[in-house]
Structure formats: C-alpha cells, structure tokens
Design a protein around this nucleic acid. Structure first.
Lengths: 214, 214
DNA sequence: TACAAAACCAAGCGCTCGGTATGTTTCGTT
DNA sequence: AACGAAACATACCGAGCGCTTGGTTTTGTA
C-alpha cells in the first residue's frame, strides 16, 4: 500500500497505472484547471488557458483528457470522495455524539481552508457542478449526497435524539454544510479567529447551552 | 408616489422614464435573462437564448441594453437593493433586538423563496457576480456589503451585547446569510416545513435557549 | 393622416471556442 | 544503437459567440 502522493490520486485506485512523467503532467493540468475554474468559472475558462498554465499547447491537453468536461468531473469527484472519507473517519473516531459532531465540523472547515487545491476545488464544486454531463452528474451527486450530506444528517439526527442539539436536524445539516463550505468567501486565515476557533463557534452555535459548557 | 409595478423598477428611480411598451419588453428581457442565468450560468447563456425567450431577435436586444454584462448588472443591483431595503425596514419595525433578528431572518427567507424572479436573481448573485466589470462590481459590492452584510452584522453585534445570542456575531452574520441564501438549493416549498418554520428553526438555532423560550 | 422616434429584423463581421488530424520529439526498454 | 510507444507541437475545422450595421415596421403625438 503506497502512500498517496497527490491530491488527485484517489480516483485512480483500481482504474489505471500511470508512468511517473505522465502522472506529473496529469496532476499539473488538474491543479491549474482547478485554479482557473475557481477563479473564472468553468464556462469562462478555456482549454487554451489551462494548456498555457500547464506549459503545453491546447491540442496536447487531449492526449491526457478526452474532453474539457472530464477534467471538471475528475476535480469534483476527487474533492467529494476525499471529503466523504474524512467525514466518515471523524465519525468513526469520535467516542460519542458530541465529539463526532465537533470533529466533523472541524474536518469540514479544514477541508475548505487548509489545502489550496482543495479549497479551490470546493469553489468549483459549489458553482459549476451543473456543467457535468448527465452520467457524470449522477455519479458525482451520489457521492456528494450519500457520502457527505447523508453522513452529516445521520449524525445530527442522533445528536437530536440525545438532546445535544435543539433544532431540526435537517435544517442543521444544511446550516452547517452551507456555513462551512461557503466560509471560503468570507473567512480569511490570519485574521481575528483561527480555523479551530471558527469551527468551535459553529459548533457552539448549534449545540445546547448546557451541553456546550459541559 | 406610484406603486412599484415590476421587480426591476427600483433601479430606474431618478434615471429615466420609459414608455409602457418599452418597459414591458424591458422587463421581459430581464425576467427571461434572470431565469436563464439562474439555470445555466451567465457565461453559458447566450444573447440569442435571451432574445428567443423574449420573442425578439438577438440584435434587437441591444436596442434595450448596451451589453450582455449590463443585463447581469441590473439584475444583481435590483436584487441587492430590494433585499437591502427589506432588511432595513424589518430592523426599523422591530420593537427590540429579538424581534428585529426574528424579522430579519424571516425577510431573508422570504426574499429567497417567495418570488420566483427574486429567487432566481439570488442564484445568479451567488454564482455570477464575478463576471461584472470592475466598475459595476464595485457598485454592486458596495450595496451588498453595506446594505445587507453590514446591516445584519450591526444587528448581531447588538444582539450579542444584550446576550440574545451566545456566539461570535461576525460568524453568525455569515452563518445566517449563507444558510438563508443557499437554502434555495435544498429547501422546497410544500415539504415538511413551511417558510415560517424554516425561518424559526434558524432563529432558534442562533439564540440562547433561555431567550428562545422566553 | 402625416411624421419623427422608437422598436425591431435580417444579415453578417471578426473572433474565439472545444476538439481533431497529422506529423515530430522524447523516453524507457532491449 | 534501435525501436515502439507515449508525449507533445502545429495547424486547422466547424460552430457559435457578442455585437454591429442598415434598412423596415410599429408606435405615440399632433
């Protein structure tokens, strides 16, 4: 079992093996495409821009990917798969509901803010998922809904049962995911709060007063 | 003082008078453009699509608007101006901090869900504001930041002083705005909760337990 | 009913888009 | 050193883009 060396590794597990040289370029293309999609949007980004930032010509892009949309799909699939895995792990490792929720919120904040590529991927995910083809969108939505939203929702339903939270768990699911995922727009690292404090503020907002201080 | 007859009226106050015919077509273009931008994104929407849905030819669009981007700007400016006005009104009419916050959250939910055009405008606002030209973006950002975000922030700072809320008011500002604005993606009318209940759940989440039941 | 202004259409310009076809260079293997 | 495959460059295609132009119809006004 080899350690993952790149952000985009995971989705290749079991699909294909790549040579070193190929894989480097492949990663660069995905990284630069992610940055460009994040900055200017999928539709406004051209394959020529992606090629230029990668250091090759536009035609050569299609030696690595069959369409522009495939690049988008791989970016979104990677981001949602990795996030889904991190959430699952944080729930498995929590000793009780309270710690599971605290860990999960912290993980969501990390995912959006700690890694530059991941951060950009989430910007793209939240804006350009609609440009996926039907098949790709179906596959992506499955990962997103089942691996991220449903995991969070199940956790919050259990938190509600145990009276850790006081309000509707389905509303809280989206309140937490919306706030964390879109915090990328307003939260800047190095400001008044650090990532831990931000996660903690969100956690404290959703849990009961008595539970928070317990 | 004439009653406002159209969603896009407000921004013309003091700028120009329009004949009836002109104004009807003008409104239809904006309405259809809003729907298309909302469905497919600004960059993926063509002036030919907008013209077709309006019932004119693409060239005729430019008799009413000088550029495609101007259409986007008017949509975003209208949405942010109206929202800003509604928030201001809900704060003025609240008898205390608690009612002001409750009203404001309710207004934000209304703004996103009650009117079809407004709802679509907010989708566009949250995804395509980056495609504004520098001058237009500057003007839009001013309205958005000062009229919406800052108004909400000032209110929450006061709420914190009075111990109505327990967590950081700046985090709460974005928690509320993100949750309400993006609820358009997951909240469907006619479901388990109605708009009042949704607004109330968000309100209850952010206020103190004792205050909530008081 | 005459007329100017506003609204609209038909046609298309210049340009850029995603993607392809074909030939050339690079590289690991032997 | 020789060879085959992978990785690239070059050049280009058809389609579609935002927007313009010049001429025609519709409209409000007197």
């Amino acid at each position: 079992m080899e350690k993952s060396t790149s952000f985009f590794d995971k989705i290749f597990i079991g699909t294909q093996a790549m040579t070193k040289h190929n894989k480097d370029r492949y990663d660069i293309i995905l990284r630069e495409a992610t940055a460009l999609f994040s900055e200017n949007g999928y539709s406004s980004t051209t394959v020529r821009q992606i090629a230029e930032r990668t250091g090759i010509k536009s035609g050569s892009l299609f030696h690595h990917f069959s369409t522009k949309e495939e690049i988008l799909f791989i970016i979104l699939k990677s981001a949602s798969l990795i996030t889904s895995g991190k959430i699952k792990k944080s729930i498995e490792q929590g000793i009780n509901c309270k710690e599971q929720l605290r860990n999960t919120i912290r993980v969501l904040i990390e995912v959006v803010h700690e890694d530059e590529v991941f951060s950009a991927s989430w910007s793209v995910l939240n804006r350009d998922a609609r440009h996926l083809t039907n098949d790709h969108r179906k596959e992506f939505t499955k990962i997103y809904n089942e691996g991220i939203i449903k995991a969070l929702q199940d956790l919050l339903i259990e938190c509600k049962k145990q009276r850790l939270v006081k309000t509707d768990p389905l509303v809280l699911t989206h309140l937490i995911s919306d706030t964390t995922f879109f915090s990328i727009r307003w939260f800047k690292k190095g400001g008044r709060l650090d990532l831990d404090q931000l996660a903690n503020q969100i956690f404290l907002t959703v849990v009961n007063n008595d539970e928070a201080t317990a």
